[in-house]
């Protein structure tokens, strides 16, 4: 119900009393910020991908040359492979373990809130700082994991966690899963808590086993939240930079480079802004796919809730 403007009201008054005018005014700070520091850089990034810009020199338009160059660059393809491998495997692990942890926490436990609070710690602590702890845990000589395994007689010499390509990939992934589990678990727990116990009880009375109850009652009701949580998780994993940068800097011999770290390495220490931007732009199609996935997840949620 827009208030009827008085005939003598000034333009400013009428403007601030209409919902469109006031809405515009209220949106202004946020919109200005996001346009200047988000939309414009996004466009600039795409443009830079088509130029040969370097640090300290504005670029010339060179069309698709950066992309053609990347097509023939084995390191780029290795980073694409690494990114997909890292994202898929880490997300699957995070989902499986996170869901398990959420189901454990959803039971009737004493000190539930306390458990929930300490489980979130890996997510709260700055990634770079916890990654430093992992760096020390994965040390080639003094790794505590190697020490324990040696002591138990499982291995005969220390594991070279970060020096061997596959060991390095898996070690980095382990650190990523470690950091991601709390987010998945706590978000899914919040979803689980909205499912009324009575549904489970009714199914149990009808003779459903615990697996059937999980598969036919809990999981379908949880699907919409799983879709959203996993979209975020995939997005964070796909664009991960910090863990790799701290633990391996892309080494040994580029074996653990993700697209984000490769783009950083080419653009900032390497000075090839154009090429770095092209690598970053190459990430966008994958991200769009993830966002569309989330969108359809949300759609399904609406459908489940009935008409809206």
């Amino acid at each position: 119900m827009p208030p009827v403007p008085e005939p003598r009201a000034s333009f400013w008054r009428r403007f601030t009393e209409s919902r469109n005018g006031l809405g515009l005014l209220f949106m202004l700070p946020a919109a200005a910020f996001l346009l200047c520091f988000l939309t414009y850089p996004l466009g600039l990034g795409v443009w830079l991908g088509f130029t040969d810009a370097r640090i300290g020199r504005a670029g010339q338009w060179i069309g698709l040359e950066n992309y053609q160059w990347l097509m023939d660059d084995p390191v780029f393809w290795l980073s694409v492979f690494n990114t997909l491998f890292y994202t898929v495997l880490a997300s699957v692990l995070k989902f499986g373990l996170g869901l398990w942890l959420a189901l454990l926490l959803n039971r009737h436990l004493p000190c539930k809130n306390f458990f929930r609070a300490i489980i979130l710690l890996p997510w709260v602590v700055p990634t770079v700082l916890s990654a430093l702890a992992f760096w020390w845990i994965f040390d080639s000589q003094f790794s505590i994991i190697s020490w324990v395994l040696l002591k138990w007689g499982i291995i005969s010499q220390p594991i070279n966690f970060l020096g061997d390509p596959w060991n390095a990939r898996l070690s980095v992934m382990a650190a990523n899963v470690w950091r991601g589990i709390p987010f998945v678990a706590i978000s899914l727990l919040a979803g689980l808590q909205t499912i009324p116990q009575s549904l489970n009880e009714a199914a149990a009375i009808d003779g459903a086993t615990s697996w059937q109850r999980f598969r036919r009652v809990t999981l379908p009701l949880l699907t919409p939240i799983i879709a959203v949580v996993m979209t975020f998780s995939v997005l964070f994993t796909f664009t991960d930079f910090q863990l790799i940068y701290v633990l391996t800097r892309g080494g040994p011999v580029n074996a653990t480079h993700l697209m984000a770290t490769l783009s950083f390495q080419r653009a900032i220490p390497g000075g090839q802004l154009g090429e770095g931007a092209a690598i970053a732009v190459a990430m966008i199609p994958f991200l769009l796919a993830a966002i569309l996935f989330s969108f359809f997840g949300l759609q399904r949620r609406k459908w489940q809730q009935g008409a809206d």
């Binding site: 990034g45 830079l48 984000a260 770095g276 966002i291």
Partner: peptide
């Protein structure tokens, strides 16, 4: 606008840092 805000939330810093450094 609400939808755009949500999309903005999904834009990761890893693809913005190069153009932002230029700006």
């Amino acid at each position: 606008t609400g939808l755009l805000i949500f999309l903005a939330y999904l834009v990761p810093p890893s693809i913005l840092f190069i153009p932002l450094s230029v700006i």
